[in-house]
Every structure is written in C-alpha cells, then in structure tokens.
C-alpha cells in the first residue's frame, strides 16, 4: 500500500484536491482509502464516502495537536486501510501550527497552499513546506500573474527541488501531474519514521497550562530578548 499525506492550512483546498485525485485513482481501477484528522469538526470523510463509496475514517485530535495525533495513530490507520483492501491511503491533516510536518519517510508528502494567502506565505511556514515532495498551489485564478510568479518563486526559494503544481482544483485543473507522482511513489516501509523532527520542547500549553509568561512554564523556554533555555528536571 502507498501512503500519501496531505497537509496545509485550514480552508486552503486540501479536500478539493484530494477529491479530484481520488476520482482519477478510481478511474484507473485502483482502491483508495481516506483518513481525515481534524481538531473539532470534519465531515469530509462522510462526503467522500457518499461520493465514491470508499472506506473513510475521521479522527478528532481534540486536546492533541493534529500532527501529533497523526504520529500516534498512523500505524493503526495503516493496518485498518490494509484490512479494507486499499492500495492507496490518503491522509488529510489540519497541520495547524506549521512547525511540525506530518510526512513519513519514503512516502509522498504533499503540501497544499492557497495563492490567495499572500506572497509572503512560503517564507512563513517551515517544515510543512520544506519537507514536502509536492507543493500544490490552489485558487490560482484569483490572484494576479505577478503574485503567482512571486509565490511560486518563493516556494522554490524555501524548498529547493520541490515539485510545484499550480491548480484550480474546483475545475480539476492541474491534478494530473499530482496523480502521476502518486502512482510512482513508494510502498509503505515498516517501521515508519517521521521525515522531520518536531520542534524542540514539551508544550506546557498543550498539556493545559494557561498562564501567560515564561516564569509560569517549564521545558524549553525563551524570553523576548533571549535565546532558548531549559527549566525542569
């Protein structure tokens, strides 16, 4: 089975891209499965199940960061998809803080970014972009030629060697090259490893501390002017 992970900011068009990809995968008589990881609400799994009649699943990360959730559940999800007889497992994550990246070594990682988020976006996101194999730019019809060029240029500047695909996914434009790379991608290798390291530190906020200020927290910290330091055992 092949594993393809889609990451990208909320509402950037991930599901629309995936829908177009799945349509083409089914046309080729191949069997996809779909997992959606989101924080609080998602119904994309039900939509895709209705539309294509394929096995789908959703997991709410709740108190966990969605990328963290992805790491801890993915082995079970892979097992589930294999039991369903899937040949391609598409995972869609919310990827909220943009400091982690959900991609798995030797599997295909695809980041979806919308052209409408401004020319500086490729400079603002880290590993979610730099560790991806393909960057899909959506909503290209809404921005000027000049901004599209700058956006594309800055993606290549941040992630050298990445494949950039410009797409207007609503109309299925620019999807074929993505499908081509998906078909060429590797089968899952066990054990699976994350492609990149998560940011250094244990997040006290993630575990429920709400007080503002470094003095109220432990683990890897910093103040406004100073570099990182560590407080704790």
């Amino acid at each position: 089975m092949k594993l393809i992970i889609f990451a990208g900011p909320p509402t950037c068009g991930k599901t629309t891209v995936i829908r177009q990809v799945i349509r083409r995968i089914i046309k080729k008589n191949l069997k996809p499965a779909y997992l959606k990881i989101d924080v609080l609400f998602a119904d994309e799994d039900e939509q895709l199940k209705r539309e294509f009649g394929i096995p789908t699943k959703k997991i709410y990360s709740g108190e966990l960061c969605p990328d963290h959730c992805n790491v801890v559940v993915l082995d079970e999800v892979v097992e589930w998809a294999e039991q369903q007889g899937a040949e391609y497992l598409f995972v869609e994550t919310a990827g909220l803080c943009l400091r982690c990246s959900p991609y798995i070594e030797n599997s295909l990682g695809i980041v979806v970014l919308e052209a409408t988020s401004g020319m500086n976006l490729p400079r603002k996101i880290g590993p979610m972009l730099t560790l991806a194999d393909i960057s899909v730019i959506t909503k290209i019809d809404l921005v000027s030629q000049a901004e599209r060029e700058v956006f594309r240029y800055r993606i290549l500047e941040a992630a050298k060697g990445i494949t950039v695909v410009e797409s207007n996914a609503l109309y299925g434009i620019g999807i074929d090259p993505i499908v081509r790379d998906i078909l060429k991608s590797n089968d899952i290798e066990q054990p699976m490893f994350l492609k990149g390291n998560p940011p250094v530190g244990t997040c006290t906020i993630c575990v429920g501390k709400k007080e503002i200020g470094a003095k109220n927290h432990f683990g890897v910290l910093r103040t406004m002017e100073n570099d990182l330091f560590y407080v704790g055992e």
Binding site: T116, G118, M119, D141, L142, V143, S144, Q145, A146, E147
Partner: peptide, 10 residues
C-alpha cells in the same frame, strides 16, 4: 491570464 476574478492581494 487576466480574468474577471483576478486581483491584486498585496
């Protein structure tokens, strides 16, 4: 391509 929807966002 300059369409009816094309705009500058910057």
């Amino acid at each position: 391509l300059i369409s009816q929807h094309t705009n500058f966002l910057s």
